[in-house]
Design a binder for these strands. Sequence first.
DNA 1: GTGGTCTAGACCACG
DNA 2: GTGGTCTAGACCACA
Lengths: 131, 131, 131, 131
Amino acid sequence: MRRPVKIRIDLDSPVPAYRQIVDALRVPLVEGALAPGASLPSVRRLAMDLGVHFNTVGEAYRELAAEGWLDLKHGRGATVVARGSQPAAAPERWQELRGQLRNLVAQMRSAGVPPSRIAAELRAISESLKP
Amino acid sequence: MRRPVKIRIDLDSPVPAYRQIVDALRVPLVEGALAPGASLPSVRRLAMDLGVHFNTVGEAYRELAAEGWLDLKHGRGATVVARGSQPAAAPERWQELRGQLRNLVAQMRSAGVPPSRIAAELRAISESLKP
Amino acid sequence: MRRPVKIRIDLDSPVPAYRQIVDALRVPLVEGALAPGASLPSVRRLAMDLGVHFNTVGEAYRELAAEGWLDLKHGRGATVVARGSQPAAAPERWQELRGQLRNLVAQMRSAGVPPSRIAAELRAISESLKP
Amino acid sequence: MRRPVKIRIDLDSPVPAYRQIVDALRVPLVEGALAPGASLPSVRRLAMDLGVHFNTVGEAYRELAAEGWLDLKHGRGATVVARGSQPAAAPERWQELRGQLRNLVAQMRSAGVPPSRIAAELRAISESLKP
DNA sequence: GTGGTCTAGACCACG
DNA sequence: GTGGTCTAGACCACA
């Protein structure tokens, strides 16, 4: 038996709760740990587990649905969707994300992180994308 | 003598003006193109060049000063600071930025960018950090 | 004997199933293709044909009964009612629907539909109401 | 001196307030009575006038901005935008609106409105679209 | 029971 | 001062 969706969020963080939920769920979705067809906990259930309002979870689910990962149906809960023909990223979107990546690296350097350490981190992530 | 600062911003962008200014200035600061001791244009001058209110530029300068790049002196403009006293990155800050990086990569994958392309981008940035 | 009802609905549509059923049945009722005295399939039968829960069909039948089209009898199915007793439209209801019509046209214009095309559509419907 | 935006809404109506605001503003926008460049009242101002929460007005403004009518800028209020290259309506959107129109007419007939009256209304709107 | 809407209130971001 | 975000609560729609 596999554990069904086990995430943690920090309510004291300045990062909004719904954002943390989206980020936490996107990882297993991208990696396939949450496979198509799987059911997610109901908004009210997950909300109670995390200690937030159910609308907060609902907003997170809706964002993931908008990204094409979830299927939300009245009275039938949330399920992971099969992403058959995944649309290639819009070029503008890719450029925007690329810019954010550059900015993030600049912020790391600005924060005093040694370039060698940043480079190592980037290579590590790059490697992990191979399979 | 070389023009010390040459940036462009898009006032119609959803990204706030002051953010764009900060991001645009941080790159040459990080790379050393704006070396310690160099003078930046006055808040009013840069504001006129960019077509924004001088308070907007002021806010950008203040953020860069808070990051330790600029020295703001009343009536004498802004100068790039010698970063001898730059503290090593706080471990928490590094962890936070690392998390943002991971999230950004997940967003790229979610947006449909091929992993190979993401990996290539990461390697490219990693290489550019060598020197 | 002719098949009395032949409708199709799209379960993946954001429009709720019961709404689609109501809308699909109202057309033949209004046009008289489903004449007074005709029998509709049982709730369970139609539900099975459409692949929905029988409560969903039941809700649709109830709405049409409330509009005065159907007569629902326990255990004997739904029959089309003679509309001799049909009240003339309440003035408020007519005003409300008129307002919705105006709004719909404004939405079409807002969506970029050429006015000439909207006008043509309106005339076409207008003509079809003649007989 | 022209009166600046004068709308009324009914807080007792089942139609949500923000929806009424959108509908009320779209008409002068479509007709050009609110011309490009014109300023709308601030969300807080209009909210007070209408007796609703400012977020309610904000949501209405945002919907009109999404339709391409308004430009919302932090600290600079809401202005009517020049719709240079108005995008032709997406075919799906047109089909959807067409279906809604058909449904609306069916509802009118179902409500007991004489077909002749419906036809007259449709022709009237059709005529008004000529110029 | 499910997910969804609408509005409100506290707070933030921006110029 | 502007618009915007995030969360909450009451209520609705749906199966």
